Computed example of a mutant assay.
Amino acid sequence: MTAVTPPPTAAPAAPRTAPKAKTAAKERVPFWDNARFLCVALVVIGHGIQRLTSDSNNALIVYLFIYAFHMPAFAIISGYFSKPGPPGVRQMTKVITDIIVPYVIMESIWTLVQYLVEGKREFNPTQPSWTLWFLLALGIFRLILPYLALLRFPLLIALAASVGVGYLGNVDSTFSLSRAIGILPFFILGWKAKEWGIVDRWRGVVEHTWWLRGVAAAVLGAWLVVVVVNIQFWRDIDLRFWFFYDDSYTALGEDQWWAGLVRLGLIGLAVLLTAAFFMLIPRGDTWITGFGSATMYVYLLHSFILYPLRETGILKDEHASATWLLSMILACIAISIALSSPLVRRIFRPIIEPKPRWLFVEQPEGPMRSSRTDPTGSRRS
């Protein structure tokens, strides 16, 4: 927050105006809380019905519809609330407390769970378990954003990196690098959207233009029709794996030169669907708004609830019916709501939002400055 220095004649009023500015800066916008919760609910639904997709076209339809845009939407939201400037002490500390420490804690818990259930004896934090890849991706995004912000065309560079990394078979899921680079354009787009003021203008227009919501619904409906009509083709080419932005094109079975154009097209599709999705999200307070501040709890904890269902194999064969699909969707919505509750947040706050102050030395607030002018320290001012 930028400090406001009052004129000399207004000096006595400074103590009263400063707290007001601080309060206003922290005011939450209902639209973003609604968007966060709906996105994380789609994540839970996608993970919940994943095992059904092998035996059910209906499940695969829902899965492809969701996966085309739900993680790109999450990345756009993350980028929108990221700061591109040089990190200060507080920002650098939050990378450790909000990303690195929770990742180590959750990865350790997953290692224990997999040992007890599967007998797996391996602790390898370089290979994130299941949903933990997004934590590492966020860490990578926050570290490189100040550097990309210095460049003239950061969004174009991010697009080139995302498309280009698919041609490199040696860039894999280690530290989520391939996936982070793959969805980087969405994160940068979110940051640029805030810089351009697109969302604020968009929100004002949509409030009074009902036909834009109609267009958004038509866009999402058209994608659903495309998925339904071509479902067997999508199954044959394993389209769902393309939405992970993880494997190289060769690993996806496409080693042709034009494979990068497929990813570029999917990025464009994701942006279009995300825009339509955001346009339909309620702008004011709703019954889901309060859940929007607990999305990290839902994201990191839901996998432990779904893990037994995935491992038992119950969501296959005769349990892949439309009735089971609908039941799983409703159950995943209920899980998302339950994990957003104040009780869950109070119980699991030490591992989701740890505050390990003992890790840090005392530092003055503000940007860390160094006299070094290159990474090796060989040149000093």
Rank of each mutant, 00 (worst) to 15 (best):
P87Q: 09
Y67C: 02
Q91Y: 08
I77M: 10
P87S: 08
A73P: 05
F69E: 00
Y67I: 00
T93V: 15
F65Q: 08
S82C: 08
L64R: 06
A75S: 05
I66M: 08
I66T: 05
K94C: 13
D98C: 06
V95G: 03
G79D: 04
P87H: 11
F81D: 03
Q91I: 09
T97S: 09
L64H: 08
M92A: 05
A75H: 05
P86K: 15
G79Q: 04
G85A: 15
H70N: 12
R90T: 09
D98R: 14
R90I: 13
S78Y: 01
M92E: 14
V89W: 10
I96L: 13
Y67K: 07
D98T: 11
R90K: 14
K83H: 10
S78T: 02
P84E: 05
H70G: 11
M71P: 04
P72G: 03
I66P: 01
G85H: 11
V95K: 06
I99E: 07
K94V: 11
P72L: 02
H70K: 08
Y67V: 01
P86H: 14
L64C: 11
R90D: 13
G85S: 14
A75Y: 03
T97L: 15
G85I: 00
Y80N: 02
M71T: 02
A73E: 07
K94L: 15
K94R: 14
K83R: 12
M71V: 10
I77A: 01
A68R: 03
S78L: 02
F69N: 02
F74N: 05
Y80C: 00
P84L: 03
F74A: 11
D98E: 13
I96F: 11
G85Y: 06
I66Q: 03
K94T: 14
G88Q: 08
P72E: 09
I76L: 13
V89A: 15
Y80Q: 03
T97C: 05
G79W: 01
K83F: 00
A68F: 04
I77E: 00
Q91D: 14
Y80H: 05
D98Q: 13
